[in-house]
Design a protein around this nucleic acid. Structure first.
Length: 881
RNA sequence: GCCGGAGUGGCGGAAUCGGCAGACGCACGGGUUUCAAAAACCCGCGCCGCAAGGCGUGCGGGUUCAAGUCCCGCCUCCGGCACCA
């Protein structure tokens, strides 16, 4: 680099220079604790203000540092936080670290660096990066889930779950990889092979901790209705919970006295059409009922099913498979000896052992899957419906059992029991279901039943870097570590390598594992650790009272701050994290520790920031280092082949990852914040376009020059801004309009259009710069503050605004300033704009029409006006003949 | 397959309740300034057409004085779920 020239040396101060402004204010905000938020009970707490809790999904502090996706949501909540502060709210806007997790442990295995050490270093990086973006977090409330002062309470909450019967041990299958000698998480296994190294993996049962989230299924489902979340997200949660209402029905197995098979069905009304039964291959009764002649086939099928991964078994368009057990079951609706009631029992892998009772009654006439199965294996398909849709051919097919019908149609006349105690013909579906269940209940053959797809939450991992369970195993069973001995900390270990057994590496920390219980008896510590979602299931509570050493969070603090008023994050947590957090909140509520039953009132999902990539003729993506961009065209740097631009995920492989630090280095944090908000609606996915970034920088420069002339000495502001005087009335109007627009846009999270409105104001003000007053510019700085806080605070200071802009009140809108004296009205003839007229606001209809007629006289000539439509203040439409 | 969401200039997007399609930004073109360049500023910029005018919000229909917006039928893309009885 050459020495700076004399010219560039004397340049500085007067040009907008984020590199000096931004660090200055960042230091100021941190050193003076500008964004510290007092809690109820603190000396400087103002109980007169309403509260607002704006929360980001806290990040996992990865070694890669922040990517441009993080600041998108963070900027949105920061804008709302700064806005709400200016509007007179007590704002809780915290940040912390989801610090337990696999990558740190992997890194530890590779480099022998303790996860605590790498995590601490990554946190430093993340905090620094976030502070360089000017977010108004209250850093006094910073928390880390891996901090013993934090996970002490994660353990404490877990104990409360245990005490309430919501935590239990179970033998659940885990992915075990022989070649790697370790247990893998679900997402590390692809098609039954390890992601790393592509080694075969198998499911092995292992003792695990499980949380009984299913006990809360109904409440988790019902309370979705009151949440201010997107419909699509609510739908995802509802479908995940997957409630089904129906009945369980008992079938006797013919020739096996005392053996009943219980099935679950949502269509008890189709019981007359049950022509076979299917058990999951793993169903416990399979062995007992299998006939000798079928034993070989059944065992073979079971073996094949067991070796298939869940993915293979539930594979899409795959053919149905199954084998007959040789047994028959008795349909309870038909008398013994009636051929229609004697149905074969099959096993097939399309029935899942963990759902319902793991057994179904197959009604091919009313269920597509059963129909397909019946056709493939040539099983009876008795018709049970008598549809009258008007399509005679289709109706006849359904009646004859040649087609499957899942819609609500009339039942066939023969759908009745021999003694007439149950008759379905003429009933609506709901009624038929009810009557059938009644009939079954009266005879002890079944009952109404509600089933959920959601399963209990597998709550342990065979890993080192997670929260230890506060649990001891003694000869008498499980014993909890007393509250006053929490936290149970991790032992120090130097070697995290998997030990070749399907257990956590903690098993090798002998001195830690072998301990004594409260009575001095030998005990072993639990070696499973908690999953990543443990700490994140309650962090929003800890933020309310982060330093409390007596409680996880005082009731007073959570009563004041909860629920979270605005929660912003990605859709990837649509079911996992959000469901777990709702579950823990409800449990803590039931235990009397938290007032609310739902933690997150309004939730907003930001879209993904994508990137451009270039595709060659064969549809392969060419890494950016091999792409040469010439104007609008792009070619392969070596072959010269012309390439097609596409939008895709940012990926290291494609070399199209944008590093926020580089953007900050070149244009400053305010430009980055503005650009990310200006790209498009927050909820949409949209591509990062480096060419667009300077546009936002230019906007900030223009805003800067409203105060500081381009060639000023020592950055002195315009002379006419040094004193107070009345601002230009036209600019005053424009300003009020802008405030009004920004107000509304922040309210609906439409930050892109709010910025557009401010751009319009800056353009207007630039054109009339000599008429701009100090008061007007101060108010504009307030408007800009949530979006570009550094520049706004600097402008405020240079214009000698009172106190700190961060504490200043939001500017007022005078409704009178939003109305004009005159409006321009479009004049249409037959719906096409043919002219325009300017009339006084609120002008009489006749007056408007007269002016409009005159404006389009040429188009009306020789025509008859048959209708006149006047939309006040907007348009006039003449319908002519 | 099922359930969501979306499709608007060369690009990102705007149009909040059925009322002037294309705000704002980028790119591009022209100009001012400059020895020159950058920066900055001004003007232009949906498509066809010299113009008058016509066409235009994925495609095809419909409702309406008026449709990007509402209704019916398709197509494409993105996200989620996926044999859940």
């Amino acid at each position: 680099m050459s020495e700076p020239t004399a010219e560039s040396k004397s340049e500085p101060k007067q040009v907008y220079d984020p590199a000096t402004i931004e660090p200055k204010w960042q230091r100021f905000w941190v050193e003076r604790d500008v964004f510290r938020t007092p809690n109820p009970g603190d000396a400087d707490f103002d109980a007169g203000k309403p509260k607002f809790y704006a929360l980001d999904m806290f990040p996992y502090p990865s070694a890669a540092g922040l990517h441009v996706g993080h600041p998108e949501g963070y900027t949105a909540t920061d804008i709302v936080s700064r806005y709400k502060r200016a509007k007179g709210f007590n704002v809780l806007h915290p940040m912390g670290w989801d610090a337990f997790g696999l990558p740190a442990e992997q890194y530890a295995i590779q480099t022998n660096t303790h996860p605590a050490k790498t995590t601490a270093a990554n946190v430093e990086t993340f905090r620094g990066q976030l502070q360089r973006l000017g977010f108004s977090y209250d850093w006094n409330r910073e928390i880390s889930t891996a901090d013993p002062k934090y996970f002490r309470w994660t353990q404490w909450i877990w104990k409360r779950l245990y005490e309430r019967g919501l935590a239990y041990e179970s033998n659940a299958p885990v992915w075990w990889c022989e070649a790697l000698g370790t247990v893998l998480a679900n997402d590390e296994v692809i098609n039954g092979r390890s992601e790393r190294g592509d080694h075969p993996c198998e499911r092995r049962p292992l003792r695990q901790w499980v949380l009984k989230i299913t006990e809360y299924a109904e409440r988790l489902l019902n309370d979705i209705d009151g949440l201010d979340w997107s419909e699509s997200l609510k739908t995802m949660q509802r479908e995940w919970i997957g409630k089904s209402e129906g009945a369980e029905v008992d079938f006797d197995v013919i020739g096996h006295a005392d053996t009943k098979i219980r099935v679950f069905t949502t269509r008890p009304d189709t019981l007359f059409g049950a022509s076979f039964m299917v058990l999951a291959p793993e169903h416990p009764l399979v062995d007992a009922i299998t006939a000798t002649a079928q034993r070989g086939a059944v065992d073979g099928y079971k073996k094949t099913a067991a070796s298939k991964s869940e993915l293979e078994r539930t594979d899409l368009a795959k053919d149905k498979s199954g084998v007959w057990t040789g047994a028959y079951a008795q349909n309870p609706l038909y008398p013994e000896g009636d051929e229609r009631g004697r149905i074969p029992v099959w096993i097939a892998d399309y029935v899942i052992v963990t759902y319902g009772t793991g057994a179904i009654m197959a009604v091919p006439a009313g269920d597509e899957r059963d129909f397909e199965f019946a056709q493939k294996f040539d099983l009876a398909i008795p018709g049970i419906f008598a549809p009258a849709t008007g399509d005679a051919e289709a109706d006849a097919k359904v009646a004859a059992g040649q087609a499957c019908c899942t819609a609500e149609v009339p039942y066939a006349a023969h759908c009745h029991t021999a003694d007439g105690s149950l008759q379905l013909a003429g009933l609506a579906m709901a009624e038929a279901k009810r009557k059938t269940i009644e009939w079954l209940v009266a005879r002890g053959r079944g009952e109404a039943k509600v089933t959920y797809k959601m399963r209990d939450w597998l709550f342990s991992r065979q890993r080192y870097w997670g929260e230890p369970f506060p649990v001891l195993h003694t000869q008498d069973g499980v014993e909890l570590v007393p509250d006053d001995q929490l936290p149970v900390e991790l032992p120090h270990m130097d070697d995290f390598k998997p030990g070749g057994v399907p257990e956590s590496p903690l098993i090798r920390a002998r001195e830690w594992v072998e301990t004594k219980d409260a009575k001095g008896r030998p005990a072993q510590r639990e070696i499973n650790t908690m999953p990543g979602a443990a700490g994140s299931s309650w962090y929003f509570l800890r933020f309310c009272d982060p330093h409390n050493e007596q409680q996880f969070c005082s009731k007073a603090a959570s009563d004041y701050w909860l629920p979270v008023d605005l929660y912003v994050g990605g859709t990837e947590h649509a079911v996992g994290h959000l469901l777990y957090s709702r579950f823990w909140t409800k449990v803590l509520h039931d235990a009397g520790h938290v007032g609310v039953v739902e933690p997150f009132h309004k939730l907003y999902n930001q879209g993904m920031i994508q990137a451009f990539a270039y595709e060659d003729g064969r549809g392969g993506i060419v890494p950016m280092k091999d792409v040469k961009e010439i104007g609008d065209e792009a070619v392969h740097a070596t072959t010269g082949e012309s390439l097609k631009r596409i939008v895709t995920k940012m990926s290291k492989r494609y070399g199209n990852v944008v590093n926020p630090d580089e953007v900050v280095g070149e244009y400053g944090a305010d430009t980055l914040r503005l650009y990310e908000m200006y790209m498009g609606p927050l909820a949409d996915s949209k591509p990062w376009n480096p060419k667009d970034v300077p546009g936002l920088y230019r906007f900030l420069q223009r805003a800067w020059r409203l105060a500081v002339p381009e060639h000023a000495e020592n950055g002195a502001i315009h002379a006419h801004l040094r004193e107070d005087r009345d601002g230009d009335p036209a600019l005053e109007k424009a300003l009020h309009r802008t405030i009004h627009k920004v107000d509304g846009d922040i309210g609906r999270m439409a930050f892109n259009t709010a910025i557009a409105a401010m751009m319009i104001f800056v353009n207007d003000a630039t054109k009339a710069i000599d008429k701009l007053s100090r008061g007007q510019l101060l108010r504009f700085a307030q408007l800009l503050q949530p979006f570009a806080p550094h520049l706004a605070e600097e402008l405020w200071a240079r214009l000698s605004g009172e106190g700190l802009l961060a504490y200043a009140a939001w500017p007022q809108v005078d409704p009178a300033m939003l109305v004009d004296d005159e409006v321009e009205i479009a004049v249409q003839v037959l719906g096409k704009v043919r002219g325009r007229v300017t009339v006084a606001t609120g002008a009489a209809k006749d007056e408007v029409l007269a002016a409009a007629r005159a404006a389009v006289a040429g188009h009306l000539e020789g025509k008859t006006v048959v209708k006149e439509i006047v939309v006040p203040g907007k348009l006039v439409n003449f319908v002519v003949r």
